[in-house]
Design a protein around this nucleic acid. Sequence first.
DNA 1: GTGAAAGCGCTAACAC
DNA 2: GTGTTAGCGCTTTCAC
Lengths: 325, 325
Amino acid sequence: MTPAAKRATSADVANAAGVSRTTVSFVLNDKPGYSIPEETRRRVLDAAVRLDYRPRASARSLAAGRSDIVLLAIPDLPIGAGISRFVEELAGALAEHGLTMVTHLAGARGQLLPDVCAAVDASVVVGFDAFDEDTVQALYRAGADVVLPPRVASSPALQPIGRLQADHLIGRGHRRLGYAMPEHSNLRSMAEDRLDGVVGACLDAGLERPTVLSTSLEIARAAQAVAGWTERSVTGVCAFNDETAIAVLAGMRAHGLAAPGDLAVIGADDIPTARLTAPPLTTVCFDLPEVARQRAEEIMAVLSGRESSAVSTLADLQVVQRSST
Amino acid sequence: MTPAAKRATSADVANAAGVSRTTVSFVLNDKPGYSIPEETRRRVLDAAVRLDYRPRASARSLAAGRSDIVLLAIPDLPIGAGISRFVEELAGALAEHGLTMVTHLAGARGQLLPDVCAAVDASVVVGFDAFDEDTVQALYRAGADVVLPPRVASSPALQPIGRLQADHLIGRGHRRLGYAMPEHSNLRSMAEDRLDGVVGACLDAGLERPTVLSTSLEIARAAQAVAGWTERSVTGVCAFNDETAIAVLAGMRAHGLAAPGDLAVIGADDIPTARLTAPPLTTVCFDLPEVARQRAEEIMAVLSGRESSAVSTLADLQVVQRSST
DNA sequence: GTGAAAGCGCTAACAC
DNA sequence: GTGTTAGCGCTTTCAC
């Protein structure tokens, strides 16, 4: 492997272009208010390219007082692959604004978020899930300029998913609904948010609250839940997400029940394998990339002082109907 | 939100502890060769804690010439959630060595890896998939000290998975095997590696090479592949991974065939929903966290000059048998 | 319009 | 053992 060749510095560029470092800095940063002659500008740009110059991030942020690093904190959740679309999109959108996003997956063994934040010198920390107040404080002390409170995967933001699931079932004649809650504790708050939407839809339709039962991704466990629902004459269940829905389907199979006749099931997130179940899983999907774009806008808004005006919402939320009835 | 409070600097700690910045630096970095009196040491540590002092990463790496950031580059693959276990574990293992790992997901819209590397001032870049030579060069120019060539998800490293799949099927009497290849082009090289293992096992057992057929995660597409295998009297198929295996199962269902009687299927990776199919999917699993730990050791080895001695291997590779026969 | 000079916070020789 | 002193590479105020 090639050892690192000597890296060009701002001074090298200045020399090569026959100007001072100041000028280089101005040109490369498009410093407003300093109209630099096209001629000089070109020379600098040229030299920079020729020398493959890249400002050293540490020097830059040390001098400027802030970096252009955005740290995305992903909590320790069994999240599906869909999330990666979101991550990529968010990174892309931020990149267009000159920000670099990197991700940190929380894990039992890993460092605490504030430590990571400090280590990478992030000036923005974006959370997926809600940060508790202590964490927020710690992040600010760790050097973050802005910490984005939960929006995407939290609180009211997720309710529309549950509401849409329930409305779909209600619209197809179901009067007693169930809700399949994941057992995994880290998924709890997200699930409760989605559940709130289901509850809201039920109440609005004059129905009882849904029968909430937990399940893991074990057939036996799911079968128990299914038994619970059928006992209470539930005819349709909204599952927290597609994986949970697949577990419910498996639980039904264990009882010799078939969807949607014996019990209708609707998932959420539209994971790739949702279409491979028997019967294919009806689910709710939304435009994650679009959510990411909105999110990026929020970040830019906060960064540039304007208060986060637009609150992001789930874009293109809709039911993907796969099995009849 | 609380605006960033003034952050304590090394000088503040020095004042509070009544020593000089040098001493602070030595104490905090456990500089070897400078036995500092326990007394002084304590004072410094105390002051640091009291002031919630954290060295500013940019200043530190600017002065030291290198950061302690490790950038993990994840290629644009539809990777499952299992990967997150690996990522967390790797981050954890590196953290124990004082390194901070962050992740970058390659994406069409995102920045190029070398740009990200430069932006976060990473001194180590770890790849998942193979980096081509140009990228490696670019990474070095972007400031990386070490770029770790592929090991985990590439080349011979993955063959044992395919071999184990095939051996399992062969051991149960199957004489004509099939291989379910994913259509997704980014998965190609990984799949070919696993396939090599299957081919090897077949040849070693004196069997013909497996019938390789591609499929997507669409039932119709999978059904085609299934037809192809049955036509050629294949009785057992090794799938690239569990998702592909699930697709094969769905394709079989479309033909009214049942596993494992009509066609035995074995997946790989042991994703959570593997146990929820009908019948439950037999698959191959391995200890990803352990692989991550080995990987971390390699990184540390390279960083400390010793040449990467141990080549990581798949740990605890084994078949998880779920359906009979 | 461009350059000189003063730091940003930290590390690491080098003296004391 | 501990403090003094240079920088690391860049931004940015302030003269020219």
